[in-house]
Structures are given as structure tokens and as C-alpha cells.
Write a protein that binds this DNA or RNA. Sequence first.
DNA 1: CAGTGTGAAGGGGTTCACAGCG
DNA 2: CGCTGTGAACCCCTTCACACTG
Lengths: 215, 215
Amino acid sequence: MANVVDKTKVPQATVPRLARYLRVLHKLERENVPKVSSKELAERLDANAAQIRKDFSYFGEFGVRGVGYEVSYLIGELSRCLGLDMEWNVVIVGVGKLGTALARYRAFREEGFKLVGLFDSSRYVVGTELDGLTVQPDKGLAAFVRENKIDIAIITVPAESAPLAAERAIEGGIKGIVNFAPVKLGPVPGVFIRQVDLSTELMVVSFYLSQKQQA
Amino acid sequence: MANVVDKTKVPQATVPRLARYLRVLHKLERENVPKVSSKELAERLDANAAQIRKDFSYFGEFGVRGVGYEVSYLIGELSRCLGLDMEWNVVIVGVGKLGTALARYRAFREEGFKLVGLFDSSRYVVGTELDGLTVQPDKGLAAFVRENKIDIAIITVPAESAPLAAERAIEGGIKGIVNFAPVKLGPVPGVFIRQVDLSTELMVVSFYLSQKQQA
DNA sequence: CAGTGTGAAGGGGTTCACAGCG
DNA sequence: CGCTGTGAACCCCTTCACACTG
């Protein structure tokens, strides 16, 4: 089983694309499409077919020459490439609107992410239930992360609370953080931190629209 | 006033970075820091100082050699670069948890985005109030966009409803879309569409964590 | 012979290194 | 003298083109 790939050689840009491929493949599976070519995939994603094949090639040979890719097989392979064959224990810190939205996001569960804890600092939120989980006080975060071997913390608290939330998660031995608060966290050695910034997206749109108006 | 820049020559990667610079600068302003050097900015962002200077250089000369950048002046310039000196009329389509979270996001208003309409298909949501706006039935979206000169639609409906929502917005003459639904929209000529994918972020973390476990 | 897998070419973006300027 | 602004070098990523194979 020499299927272990040196993931450090995978271009950073490839990783989020794999996730997008996977989503389209799931959709094809639901439509009972058994096979796809890189060209068909490219059309559905408006991407380049060579790009898709190249992305796959970092991990192995998933297709059949002259034929294409078997959808279900490819889903399995790409899932494994992304580490989705493991079960990741996840907590959400900050049960406001955004935290709640993410907690309810089906896609998480379906891809091997197991939501096992909700945390908040507000005493009005602590104790309430969501999806069978009781919201806990955030002071207990570090202990919970340690005792339950939590892998990933999703931080959806306000910017000013985010550093403390991260600190507690890290103290408990968290491995990865997805931070939705508009503030820089880390870097912290040994912890993978991914910053997601919603307001940036609107500004990007603003940029390209203002460009048009200029012309 | 030859301050008009050909924005087509700005690298795509620069645009979201400008937004991040802006955020740090706003923070510096609140801390009453009058000046920064590219090096100091770089430390706060863990970025490269040359990168920052290069990014600025696509738009003009904003600094003083030997000294650095005046924070408030730089904020003004970068805001203009991003088109934030205009007021953009925005609607949110889909007033679930995510839509509500975005509607309440302060940063929008402060950066020139004016939320003027909320739309939903559920009769339980239509008619409710949020931030002084009454949620309207989504059937009226196209007319509303046209009559109120809406620039940007934020789509936060489920994946299956997103294509119809987009279609209505486009029918009304929308210029830009930020799509949070996990489904590809467009491309549509003349409409700038930005796809934001929350589940992708978790998968990226999964990828890099599984890589570590391999080693 | 259709479509994959991939070396090689090409392009875009980042970083370097220093000239230029206050 | 210090920090900006920027050509040039470098590097990563994308795209091309075709050898390869079922």
C-alpha cells in the first residue's frame, strides 16, 4: 500500500480545489452519473481540464485512460486525500448566529466532522440546547478539548474575544483552528490556523464593480 | 487628478490583501497610532513588507520615504482603491442564521455597504423585522433590485434555492453577487460573482492535519 | 481512439535588492 | 540615514501538448 503521498509537495492552491471537485462529484453521484471525464468536470466547475488532472496526479492515478473517472471511486480517493476518511472532533466557540449556522451545516457531519461541543461566554446562551448539544461556558474549553481529544475549533466569537478563545483551545491541545473573527490569530507552532474573512468578500466585489464603473 | 488606476493590472491576489491591510489600519487608528512602516504592518499581518509596498504601488505612492505611512491617509487611499468611497446598495437573500449574522455585521455599514433589503421564501420569516428592515417575499426580488438600484446581492439560501435567487437578482439588473450557497452560479456576462464556501475551509484544515499525522 | 497522466513551457505573483528620496 | 518604491530574479502554479494506455 504505497498510497501515502507527501502532502508537502501538493500546491497550496490545489487543496481548496479538491474540496470543490468533491462537491460536484457528490452531486453527480446523487444524479446517478457513474463516470466523468476531466473535461466534463471542468465544464461544471468552469475550470481547466488539465488543471483537474494535474491536481489528481499529485495523489495518484484515479482514472482510466480513454474512459474517464468512476464517480464513486474518485469520491473515495479524494476524500482520503483531504483526510476526510478520518473522523475529526470539532467544537464551535461562540454560539451566535454564525456559530449556529455552522452547527447546523449538514455538510460537516457528512464529511467526517463530528461536532461534539458548543461553547459561549454569555450566560443567556450557556445551557441552551442545539442539535442535542448543550452550550457550555467557555471557561471550560481547554479542559474539554484535552479530555475529549478535540481536533478542530471553529471560532465564531466577536473579534475582541477571539484571542482568548484561541488561547484556551490551544492550551487544551487543539490541532487546528478555523477563525471567523476579523482578527489575526497566531501563528502558533504546531497549530494549523485558517483565517476566514466574510467582510473581505464584499470588498472584493466592491473592487471589481468600481473598476467597471471607471471604464 | 490622474489618480485613476487601471484596475485590470492589479493582481487578483492583491485585492483581498488590501482588505486585510485596511482592517489592521483601522485597528491602529483606534489605538491612536499615527504612522506605520511597511515592516510594522508586515509584522502585524505576518506578511512580507515588500509585498505590502508592492501592493500599494499598483495604486500610487502613499508613503513618505524614510518615514513610513500616515495611518489615516493610507486608510483613505486604500478605501478608495477598493471602491469603498462609493455607497453600495446591498440586499440579503435568505434570512436564516447566516443571513441574519451577515445583516448584523457592523463592518458592512462602516465600509459603505448599505443594507436596504432582506428577502426570504418562508412565510414564517417574511414580515419579520431585522435592524429596521422588514423581510420581503423573494418573488419581489427582481423588481426591488431594479427599482432601488441594488448593486450587490448576498445569497444565503440553501443550495437548491440559490440558482433561482441569483436569476431573480440578475433579472433585476444586479451587478455583483456574493454566494454562500455551496453551488456554482454563472458565469453571467456583466455580473461579478464571488463564491464563498464555508465547508471548504474545514476540509483545508482536515488536509493539513492529516498530513501531520502521516509524518 | 478517446481521455488520462505528465514533462515542459509559459505566466502570474512574490521576494529580493537597491536606487531614489525626504 | 531610513524607509519607500520598483525593476529584476525567482518561484510556484497553470496551461499546453503529447506520449501513453485501456
